Simulated scan of single mutants.
Amino acid sequence: MDRLEAMSILLAAVEAGSFSAASRKLGVPLPTISRKVGELEAHLKTRLLIRSTRKLTLTDAGADYVAACKRILEQVGDAETQASGEYSAPRGELILTAPIVFGRLHVVPTVTAFLAAFPDIDVRMVLSDRNANLVDDHIDMAVRIGALPDSSMVATRVGSVRRVVCGSPAYFAAHGTPKTLDDLADLTSVTFAGLGTSWTFPSQSRGKAAKSVQPRCRLSINMAEAAIDAAIEGIGLTQVLSYQVARAVAGGKLRIVLEDFEPAPMPVHLIHAGQGRLPLKMRRFLEFAVPRLRQSLMDAAP
Rank of each mutant, 00 (worst) to 15 (best):
E5S: 15
L10M: 12
A13D: 01
R24E: 07
L26G: 14
G27A: 05
V28C: 07
P29T: 08
I33M: 13
H43G: 09
L48V: 04
L56E: 03
L56I: 05
A63T: 08
A63F: 03
A63Y: 02
A68I: 11
I72S: 14
Q75F: 15
G77W: 06
G77M: 06
D78R: 15
A89N: 08
G92P: 00
I95A: 13
L96V: 06
T97Q: 08
T110A: 13
V111T: 05
L127T: 02
V135Y: 06
D136W: 09
I139D: 05
A147W: 00
M153W: 14
M153V: 13
A155E: 05
G159L: 07
F172N: 00
T177E: 14
T180W: 00
A185R: 14
S189T: 12
A193E: 14
G194Q: 10
G196T: 02
W199E: 07
K211C: 08
Q214P: 01
R216D: 15
E233T: 14
I235R: 06
Y243R: 09
R247M: 15
G251L: 10
R255D: 14
V257D: 08
V257K: 05
F261L: 05
E262I: 01
H269R: 03
H272R: 02
R277K: 15
P279G: 07
K281D: 04
K281F: 04
M282S: 13
F288G: 02
P291L: 11
S296G: 11
M298H: 09
M298E: 14
A300T: 10
